[in-house]
Simulated scan of single mutants.
Amino acid sequence: MTDTPYHRIRVVVVDDHAVMRAGVIALLTDEPTIEIVGEANDGREGVDLVQRLAPDVALLDLRMPVLDGVAATTEIVALPTATRVLILTTYDTDVEIERAVEAGAVGYLLKDTTREQLADAIRSAARGETVLAPKVAERLVARMRRPKPISLTARERDVLRAVADGLSNAEIGRRLVIGEATVKTHLLRVFAKLDVSDRTRAVVVALEHGLLARS
């Protein structure tokens, strides 16, 4: 009885640190479902390598010379090769993660990832699944739960300040030299941004968020 043939996932490793690159390749050498088909030491070489070899997965560092990981990811996902990009880096800031994901990376791993985790991530990435290191996932969830900052335009603040002074819509219009209908439009936008339904509550919420100076 012969073994059922399987497709080996073709991977390229792109990292400007030769020791790290060699270490990653060594970790994956004994994985029967993964084949390292190439390596590059900067983003530009990585993009050229992907274009030439059309691997299933490109394993990219984030900060590299010539072309960084985010820029390289953008170029790779635009190629007709259907190569999935998996970021493997030491950086886990919100900005770095967001930039990589927006560029088209299907996964974001940290360099303390174990061999088993890395191999599993590559297999998942090859299937087009999203792969995130636990620490990265925690950061994204925390960010999603963080209240979004409220932003009012200068004119909306002027209108709300006049409301806080007790002025009617007509009086606000005269103070700001705008029509009463325009005042109402600004107030409706303020209500929507502050998630309120009346003038008094709008002033209270604005004060709570530091959008108006307390008198």
Rank of each mutant, 00 (worst) to 15 (best):
H7D: 03
V12W: 10
D15H: 09
D16V: 08
A18P: 10
M20P: 01
M20N: 06
M20V: 14
R21D: 06
V24M: 07
N41A: 10
D42N: 15
G43Y: 13
E45S: 13
L49R: 02
V50K: 00
R52Q: 12
L53Y: 07
P55I: 05
D56L: 04
P65T: 10
G69H: 07
A71T: 10
T73H: 08
E75V: 06
I76E: 07
A78E: 13
L79N: 02
P80Y: 09
R84H: 15
D92H: 08
R99H: 14
E102D: 10
V106C: 15
Y108R: 07
L109W: 06
K111P: 05
T113Q: 05
T114V: 10
T114F: 06
Q117W: 01
L118E: 05
A119C: 10
A126M: 00
E129D: 15
V131Y: 07
L132H: 02
E138T: 13
V141P: 02
R146C: 01
I150G: 03
S151E: 14
T153H: 13
G166C: 09
N169S: 13
A170L: 07
E171L: 12
G173N: 08
I178K: 11
E180P: 00
V183A: 02
S197C: 07
R199V: 13
T200R: 11
L212G: 06
A213G: 13
